[in-house]
Simulated assay, not measured.
Amino acid sequence: MNAKDQLEEALSLKLFVVLTRAVESIKKRVIEDIKCLGLNPTEFAVLEFIYSKGDQPIQKIGEKVLIASSSITYVVDQLEKKQLLKRKPCPKDRRVIHATLTTEGTGLMNQVFPEHKKAMKEIFSGLDVKEKQEVIEQLKKVGFHAQNL
């Protein structure tokens, strides 16, 4: 193996470690913010998705929020118990069930989502706008490449 290949391997390993540590640090901070709401990160992600995109088929939520299909039912059940979300049959296809925010769920998200956005801004304030755009593009590129291997 030549020196260029060795350097590329070493940098790839270092990139993986640095990226993993950065993600863990970010997740830790986000989890701290969310736990004070009495929610876990998965529940918050589901609420945030519906809050941002409107009523959604339950199956689609799992795909978009990266939850296993076996877990989405449990998460929706928990949010229903907390009276933050309810199931609603699709008017066009009775086989499809939508998740929709309740009045309480909408009220909670109206209250906490602006704070969540501020927390995200603070977490990523180490980068300027151009750097954020560059990182987004580079991570998409890496993600798509890994997905296609």
Rank of each mutant, 00 (worst) to 15 (best):
V17P: 02
V65L: 03
S12L: 07
N40M: 09
T100V: 15
L149C: 02
I58K: 00
G62A: 03
I67W: 05
E104G: 09
S69K: 15
K141P: 01
G107Q: 06
K60G: 03
Q138Y: 08
P91G: 00
T106A: 08
L7N: 00
Q56G: 04
F49N: 14
A119L: 07
V129C: 04
D77H: 14
K130A: 11
V46C: 08
H145W: 13
L149E: 07
T42D: 13
K4N: 00
Q56L: 10
M1L: 07
C36V: 11
Y51T: 06
S12K: 14
L7S: 01
N148S: 13
V129I: 09
I31K: 13
N40F: 03
L139V: 13
I58L: 09
H116P: 04
R95E: 06
K141M: 09
D77S: 09
V142P: 00
T42R: 15
D128Q: 06
F16L: 06
T103R: 14
V129K: 15
I67Q: 14
K140D: 07
I50F: 02
S52I: 10
P41Y: 12
K92G: 06
I26D: 00
D5S: 14
D93P: 02
L108V: 00
E122S: 12
E80Y: 02
D128R: 04
I72F: 07
T73M: 08
E9R: 00
K81A: 12
L13S: 04
S70Q: 09
M1A: 09
T103G: 05
Y51G: 12
V129R: 12
F144S: 06
T102H: 14
T102Q: 02
L127S: 02
E24V: 05
E137C: 08
K64A: 11
M109S: 01
C90L: 06
V142R: 04
P114N: 01
I67T: 10
M109Q: 07
G54C: 02
D33T: 12
T106M: 10
P114S: 01
P57A: 05
D5N: 04
G126V: 13
E80H: 00
T103I: 13
R87P: 06
A68N: 14
A68W: 08
Q56V: 11
I61F: 06
F16I: 07
V129W: 10
R95H: 10
M1H: 13
I97D: 04
V96Y: 05
S52C: 10
V30S: 05
G38L: 08
C90A: 07
K27T: 14
C36Y: 05
A3P: 00
D33N: 10
Y74E: 15
S25F: 09
F113P: 07
Q78D: 10
K132H: 12
E134G: 05
A68M: 06
I67L: 15
F44M: 12
Q6I: 00
A10F: 00
G62L: 03
K140Y: 09
E122G: 01
T73A: 10
N110W: 03
E43I: 08
L15M: 11
L79D: 00
K27A: 04
L19S: 15
